[in-house]
Design a protein around this nucleic acid. Structure first.
Lengths: 192, 192
DNA sequence: AACTCACTATGACAGTCGTCATAGTAGCGC
DNA sequence: GCGCTACTATGACGACTGTCATAGTGAGTT
């Protein structure tokens, strides 16, 4: 059935992303991924002939797209949008996720960068591309809030830096305080 | 000879930290570490009976202490110290390191968090402790610059968040621009 | 009916991993 | 000499890893 197999492929990509969030690239075993995805092992070489690199790449693509959608949802939902409010919404997303899952899962893109930036050019590029996919709607939103293009570009990068770092610190100390802190401290810069 | 073996032990710890920076915890093989350290393989079970966990833990300790020393060097060297100037010095350190090594090595603490926060409590705690070791002299410096204790605490956390995230983005896009950007954008908040 | 195609199943391969058991060496006190 | 201690050497173990070869299934087409 076409629908089922489509389901298998997508589930594998999704589950790969979740494993990346938990244990990084090196800690993610393909056999475990397909098992958790409820997919047959044979699907791996069928759908991902490029091997683990392809699979990780697609997982990062998926994650970037998902994050971008999330940004756009926030922007659409906000009545009086400001950059600081958007950033607060993003950090709240992450704080909630960390707390709900006992700080088990971080950002898959950061995991890929940390594990493969030096050893795996393909994965590194996929990570860079995912970050751009994520950053683009943020920049666009800031422009729509009246920021000049270049300013919006800088601020969206600043947001992602602070967010990624805060996730790392939060997971280390098992406390989402850093996420709330960066949202609070960056507000004046973002809304200036 | 006691001196040589001391040298072996220390070299192994150091080399472990460098491997963590490049490939994360999962990507760091102990055989390769001792080889690069020029140490005999037998030293592993002699000096680190606790296995890889102990070794990674000591590497994180070492890294935290090293980073803290570096902060204190910056503070001592600065004629007219301000929080923003300290942060700029830290980001410049990292930018130089990334450029000198072709963006090959990131932060070992971030690597440990990303790879093990969910699966290895001992390593997670070592990472959290290393971050505190790193943050402490920053906070102290900010206090000596006239910031109230609580404010200094918040600002030092903010610095580490922005720095860690900027390192990730910089390595992803192989460009140290994010490091310079966070230094520039955070300056008004830090020196306010 | 045969044939095609998308998908699944499974076993094997060579490699690496961390860990351990065991033995060996060198230096020092006595 | 002996024994003790610190350190080194090395091979093996079982448990993975990603990848591949090969065969099998089952629905759809002609």
């Amino acid at each position: 059935m076409a629908a089922t197999s489509r389901g298998h492929r997508e589930r594998i990509v999704y589950e790969t992303a979740q494993h990346l969030r938990r244990s990084g690239v090196g800690g993610t075993g393909l056999r475990q991924v397909v098992a958790d995805a409820g997919a047959p092992r044979g699907s791996l070489q069928h759908y991902f002939p490029g091997g683990k690199d392809q699979l990780v790449g697609e997982a990062l693509d998926w994650a970037g797209t998902w994050a971008a959608q999330r940004v756009e949802e926030h922007v659409a939902r906000m009545r009086r949008p400001t950059p600081a409010r958007l950033f607060t919404a993003m950090t709240q997303d992450w704080a909630r996720d960390l707390e709900a899952r006992d700080h088990a899962r971080g950002c898959p893109v950061a995991a890929a960068v940390v594990d493969c930036a030096d050893t795996n050019p393909a994965v590194r590029e996929a990570a860079a591309s995912a970050l751009e996919t994520w950053r683009r709607p943020i920049t666009a939103a800031l422009v729509s809030m009246g920021r000049p293009r270049r300013r919006a570009d800088a601020l969206s990068t600043l947001m992602l830096c602070a967010l990624e770092g805060a996730i790392v610190l939060a997971r280390a100390q098992r406390d989402t305080a850093p996420l709330r802190l960066v949202a609070r401290e960056l507000a004046p810069v973002l809304d200036a």
